[in-house]
């Protein structure tokens, strides 16, 4: 168990700076999700914490100790890779035991710790199998087991669920969360999936092009996105952006007004703006109504499926409350 601190971390690949200074203090036992589109540097950041990439400038501290120059094995971390990176010629048991074997632990201790992890992950029947004889979800568990047996202070996850199908992803997401809670280990988790970020994180780092646009608890980031990028990236369907001038908002100097789809209401009364319904998507519990505004901008309204459904091609009025709007 340990705290992790990143202090103005920068990374340069042959003159191109890809990480432009990231600061965060992670508390012991906290679950931090690094989320962002591909190419934003989130994996690079994680790999710098792991010690697989050198840190160009800044300081990484784990448990208060500077670890910039330490090899991964000396950082007291464990990492789960996207493609699991299981050793194909070793049994599940040997895969999990390999790190302990190198560390020179006794046979009895290795057997005990592997058995413990296998029980936790329900891998006991598969210990003698090779990775290729396992399903995707089971391989994922073995990769987690390999991390658990080391009893590290920090778990690092590099998009661990992106190779699984949608249903399994939801299930493993829950398992990871439970596991982290039970073990109380600090965790850093990289993903491009904002749903994973919202559900797993105690706090999340939203990265955009090598910068941390916002760091905060998921709901806080959702409610008060600091930049337009964060607003558009977190939330599905994304936040609507309206020309602030169009809706007569002279109070603000900002050019853009952001409003979440669920905060827009179709109204027959006094409307703040209006448009033509292009098409509607009924998803069961909710319905998405896509409306084209007079200036050509598209907005999405998320409404309860019990609400009256406007006809496609009809003109509707839109309204929202001031407390839900955000300016950029």
């Amino acid at each position: 168990m340990a705290t992790v601190s990143l202090d103005n971390i920068r990374k340069t690949f042959s003159k191109t700076e890809v990480i432009h200074g990231i600061d965060i203090d992670i508390a012991d036992g906290e679950f931090i999700v690094i989320v962002g589109p591909s190419g934003c540097g989130k994996s690079t950041l994680l790999r710098m914490v792991a010690g697989l990439e050198t840190v160009t400038s800044g300081e990484v501290r784990i448990g208060g100790q500077r670890v910039n120059e330490r090899e991964p094995m000396d950082r007291d971390i464990a990492m789960v890779f996207q493609n699991y990176a299981l050793y194909p010629h070793m049994s599940v048991f040997d895969n999990m035991a390999y790190g302990l074997k190198i560390a020179g632990r006794s046979k009895a201790e290795i057997a005990e710790r592997v058995a413990e992890a296998a029980k936790l992950l329900q891998l006991e029947p598969y210990l003698k199998r090779r990775p290729r004889e396992l399903s995707g979800g089971q391989r994922q568990r073995v990769a987690m087991g390999r991390a658990i047996v080391r009893k590290p202070s920090v778990f690092l996850f590099d998009e661990p669920l992106s190779n699984l199908d949608a249903k399994l992803r939801v299930q493993m997401r829950l398992e990871i969360k439970q596991l982290q809670r039970r073990l109380g280990v600090t965790a850093l988790y990289v993903t491009h999936d904002q749903v994973e970020a919202m559900t797993l994180a105690d706090r999340m780092i939203v990265m955009n092009d090598g910068r941390a646009d916002q760091i905060g608890a998921p709901l806080e980031v959702y409610a008060n996105p600091r930049t337009r990028f964060v607003a558009g990236f977190i939330g599905s369907p994304p936040m609507n952006f309206l020309d602030a001038g169009l809706v007569n908002e002279p109070a603000s100097e900002a050019a853009t007004l952001g409003i979440r789809p669920e905060h827009l209401q179709i109204t027959t009364g006094e409307a703040r703006t209006g448009g033509i319904v292009l098409y509607t998507e009924a998803l069961g519990a909710e319905t998405l109504v896509h409306v084209k505004l007079p200036d050509g901008a598209m907005v999405t309204v998320r409404q309860d499926s019990t609400a009256a459904l406007p006809e496609e091609g009809s003109a509707v009025g839109l309204t929202w409350s001031d407390s839900d709007q955000v300016f950029f």
């Binding site: 090899e71 094995m73 971390i77 890779f81 390999y98 190198i102 560390a103």
Partner: peptide, 25 residues
């Protein structure tokens, strides 16, 4: 895959150990 070498590094295997234990088999 590169991840295999990296996983071995995280597991604490020095280069020659990685060679013997993983690459050779």
């Amino acid at each position: 895959p590169d991840e295999l070498a990296e996983a071995a590094r995280v597991d604490g295997a020095r280069p020659m150990r990685f060679f013997w234990d993983i690459l050779l088999p």
